[in-house]
């Protein structure tokens, strides 16, 4: 091992860590706002990559039809549950939002796919297809039990994870795909060659993290989300609709998930079930930060990436063991260090 190899490993670790950081941050975001440990986050990553790959191959991605189905089912469920008022106005609005809009997106996808759209259009369309799924999944699976315990929500999240993985297998098949990079080629920066896509990963991560910070600090909506995170009951008392903040948190989660998927899609082969493990690494980072702090999560994610990269070099057979074994001392330390407050009793 020499300095050059160490630099390569650092580079590799930081780039993977950047993706873990994005996922870790969304896990923290979703958990603090809705108390859901969002296991299916990885599925959005896989779907982002696979949907983009489908557009590149000139086929209509199955996620388009899933969006429509999800919209129709959610709308019906919400009407039955009385979440959508049974007045002509409310029904029309819900129909436009949950059925007509997805149908338009499906139409667009079916029309544009055979023409092999340029990468940025395919990327935007991928986001348009995947992002609405976050709030729809929230309304369908989590909103009806928003006040349940963290454990119940966690079990529901695992259920959603298995369902989405199964749907992924149906839509995309068992084989993996790779997408073309947003920026091809290799750029030397200092002593290191950087792949164009790696630079895109780092840039997008930085922009997103800054964007999230601005959103939370400078906008009313962001502050509403933070308020919900601090105290749900209090937030509701001052007039913040906590179900709305839940939807927004899930929309952010699916958006960041899909974007991460599109970013890693050209760096590695993504199959229908690849997302889970990527999400799990983000989860390790989120746990390290106590599912609470954003900057700590980012730092921990980068550390996970670098640890992974170095352990792959020294003992590749035990790489995952090393990364996931890390969570045990971290949990012990956190449970010893943290003053124990049981939020269930608030």
């Amino acid at each position: 091992m020499n300095a050059a190899i160490a630099l390569f490993l650092m580079q590799d670790g930081v780039i993977n860590g950047a993706i873990y950081a994005l996922l870790g941050v969304t896990l923290v975001l979703v958990f603090t706002v809705t108390r859901v440990i969002f296991v299916p986050q990885g599925e959005f990553v896989a779907w982002g990559a696979l949907t983009l790959a489908a557009f590149e191959a000139g086929t209509t991605p199955g996620t388009a039809w899933l969006l429509l189905a999800l919209g129709v089912v959610t709308a019906i469920a919400d009407v039955l549950r009385g979440e959508i008022a049974r007045t002509p106005q409310a029904l029309l609005r819900a129909g436009l939002r949950d059925v007509v809009l997805p149908a338009l997106l499906v139409g667009l996808a079916v029309w544009i796919a055979p023409q092999k759209p340029p990468l940025w259009i395919a990327g935007l369309l991928t986001l348009a297809l995947i992002v609405p799924m976050g709030p729809l999944v929230y309304r369908l699976a989590f909103a009806p039990m928003a006040d349940a315990s963290v454990l119940a929500l966690f079990i529901a999240a695992i259920g959603v994870h298995f369902t989405l993985t199964g749907l992924g297998l149906v839509f995309f098949g068992a084989e993996g795909f790779r997408t073309t990079p947003f920026i091809a080629g290799v750029f030397p920066i200092g002593p290191l060659p950087f792949k164009g896509q790696s630079l895109v990963v780092l840039a997008v991560t930085a922009i997103l993290l800054v964007g999230l910070w601005l959103f939370f600090e400078r906008t009313l909506l962001g502050k509403a989300l933070r308020a919900t995170a601090v105290n749900r009951l209090g937030a509701r008392l001052v007039g913040i609709p906590t179900l709305l903040t839940g939807r927004i948190a899930f929309a952010l989660a699916s958006a960041i998930g899909a974007l991460s998927g599109m970013l890693v899609g050209s760096l590695t082969t993504i199959a229908y079930d690849s997302g889970f493990l990527i999400g799990l690494k983000g989860f390790v980072a989120a746990i390290a930060a106590g599912l609470a702090s954003y900057p700590l999560t980012v730092a921990a994610a980068i550390a996970v990436g670098i640890l992974e990269s170095f352990s792959a070099f020294f003992a590749s057979a035990f790489k995952e063991v090393i990364v996931f074994a890390l969570i045990i001392p971290l949990l012990v330390w956190r449970s010893l260090a943290a003053r124990h407050t049981d939020e269930e009793e608030e």
Binding site: D12, S309, A312, K319
Partner: peptide
Amino acid sequence: VERFQRTDTSVTAQTLKILA
């Protein structure tokens, strides 16, 4: 002798060792 997982996002570290 290097190993990796089906779901790994990168094998840069392993290939570096192979090249060396």
